[in-house]
């Protein structure tokens, strides 16, 4: 890879230490609000997660998840309202069904299936959000880079 020109990026990449990059899908009504709540309460968490907001976790297409992995995500997290609390009646139930499939698929592909996680986080669970992020970053650090991660991606 060519020389690093960007200071912020180099600070992360140049040390040679593995810095996980995690894509997280958050439903607008619960988990995104939970993430906001974590912010409001200043629950500190590692800066490895990039949130993609969707209206409902059931919008998250396997294609989005695969793309994230193929692009080089070390983990993909999906979060939504607790079962029974879905803003759209039963979106999270449907998410759960799809999740089961994708999880099984990753496993069969020979990836660590922990790289995909689904968690229900409500708007008031800022703490849980921060804990989940922290826990996942630790887990991914232990797993090491995703086998699909391309060299040089920051």
């Amino acid at each position: 890879m060519s020389e690093v020109k960007n200071t912020a990026a180099s600070s992360c990449a140049s040390s040679g230490e593995f810095i996980p990059k995690i894509v997280m899908f958050c439903c607008n009504w619960c988990s995104y609000a939970g993430a906001d709540g974590a912010g409001v309460s200043r629950f500190q968490q590692p800066a490895n997660v990039r949130v993609v907001r969707v209206m409902c976790s059931s919008r998250v297409d396997p294609v989005h998840i695969y793309t994230a992995f193929l692009e080089g995500a070390d983990a993909v997290l999906i979060t939504g309202c607790h079962i029974g609390d879905c803003h759209y009646v039963n979106g999270n139930d449907k998410t759960l069904v799809k999740y089961k499939f994708i999880k099984s698929m990753l496993k069969e592909m020979g990836m660590e299936d922990e790289r995909l996680m689904l968690r229900w986080i409500s708007a008031s669970e800022g703490q849980q959000f921060a804990e989940f992020v922290t826990e996942m970053v630790e887990k991914v650090k232990a797993l090491g880079p995703s086998p699909l991660r391309k060299e040089g991606v920051v």
Partner: peptide
């Protein structure tokens, strides 16, 4: 839109500036 957003999470060091 969502795929573009997801893809934008990743970039190569050389692309930065």
């Amino acid at each position: 839109q969502l795929l573009s957003q997801v893809k934008s999470v990743f970039y190569f060091e050389e692309e930065v500036n």
